[in-house]
Amino acid sequence: MEKKVVCKSRKGSNQKVSQQSIEKSSKPIAGMSKAEILAGHSRNDSVASKDIGKILDPATLDTIISHLRTSLEETFTQSSQTKDALEPFLVLLDPESIQTYLEQAWDLDRFVLDNSFLYLLSLDPQLHRTNFRTLIFFKDGRLIKTRESSNNVIRSFFELIGFSYDFIRGISTRVNGKEGHCVPYILGRYSFLPLSGPTRRQSSWVNLSKVQHYRALKGEKGVEIHCENQHVFQLPVRSQFFADKVKQAGQTIHRQEHLLRNVLRNFDYVEGRKEERENNLLGNAFHAHTDRISMISMEDYIRIFQFSFAETALKHPSLRDNPVTDEALQLLRENLYSDLPHLRNAVR
């Protein structure tokens, strides 16, 4: 009985103490104004904030934020990189380096070549131990192997561009004044170099517009070209041959750009912008009724230009007294351009 009484008395005393402490915290302290009580609370808050400041000082906060930023960047980089990311091409002179790419390439006999290809390689059946005839490397890492010859593949591409290799080669030969071997195909943004005579046999082709720089290989016959996206190819050609073709291609590009500037200037284009003809007789005539304008297709208009160039050439003073000149003009009119509208006032 005594033990129970002692326990109850202890519990009661503890309850009184806790109750008193609660009352002290909730009731105003005797002899202190409300302003003094608020000031005491603010002092307590400032002490607590100082304690937190000691734990999270500016240097520590910067370290934490920097760590979070680094973690986020690493996470984003890992998620953005695919597991099947393609490595840059490294094609060496030895045939063994081609075997790996032959195994990885897509087997396609019908496809459309585009201007993103880097190297169109003509395969040797004995040297490369394959029945495929062409292997094509693309800028984005694609690989295509085909049983079509390299000449057929590149010719189909020239058909899409609109001008054959023979046409470009003929212009380059006449501009340079001599026959050329492996003449670069240069037409605006299209720049290709055959590594051997494409008119005689199969040839490999390099897309010069994707080459950033090149260097001669020491101790062996070859040139190493570095293309966009870190792709590297070693070509089995002499360094002097490649340097001469690059120089020839650069000169052709310069001539074409010069010609284009003159043409645009004659059509009132300044820095690629059309100059409007204001208050001009011919400019106003452009807005005439369409039924008064002779509608000629672009193809016919180009053929008329071709005939005009041919006629001008045949009337050169050196051919004026040549009896073949008149026969050639008549041949052009009757066999090649007889169906053209408005040519020599001919009736449709």
Rank of each mutant, 00 (worst) to 15 (best):
E257A: 08
D326K: 13
N207D: 04
G180T: 05
A39S: 14
Q202W: 06
F157S: 00
Q78I: 07
H258I: 10
L314M: 07
I225F: 02
Q230G: 02
I302T: 01
V246M: 15
K34A: 13
Q81I: 15
N284L: 03
S204I: 04
Q212S: 05
R348P: 00
Q19L: 11
A310H: 04
F305S: 07
Y301K: 04
Q99T: 15
R344P: 00
I171D: 02
R277W: 15
L259H: 04
K315S: 05
N284S: 05
L135E: 05
T146L: 04
Q99S: 14
E299K: 15
Q126A: 05
E224L: 03
V91Y: 13
S209K: 12
I154F: 01
G177Y: 01
V91S: 14
T130A: 04
T312R: 11
K54C: 10
R110V: 12
G53R: 10
G188L: 06
L86W: 01
Y119F: 15
Q248Y: 12
L120T: 08
F89N: 03
F242R: 11
T70Q: 13
A105I: 03
T75I: 10
A35N: 12
T82P: 03
L217Y: 11
E299W: 03
Q104E: 14
R142P: 00
S150W: 06
F163S: 08
L160K: 04
R320M: 06
Q126L: 08
K50T: 12
V347L: 14
S26V: 15
I52T: 12
T134D: 01
D45W: 06
A288D: 07
Y101I: 06
P184T: 06
L108G: 00
D268K: 11
K11R: 10
F157A: 03
W205E: 01
S116G: 02
C7T: 08
E220W: 03
Q212G: 08
S13K: 14
E36V: 11
K3I: 09
S196E: 12
S156H: 08
V175C: 00
Y269S: 07
T290D: 04
R292H: 08
I171T: 00
I225K: 07
A59T: 15
D114I: 14
N207T: 00
G53D: 14
F192P: 00
D321Y: 08
R261H: 14
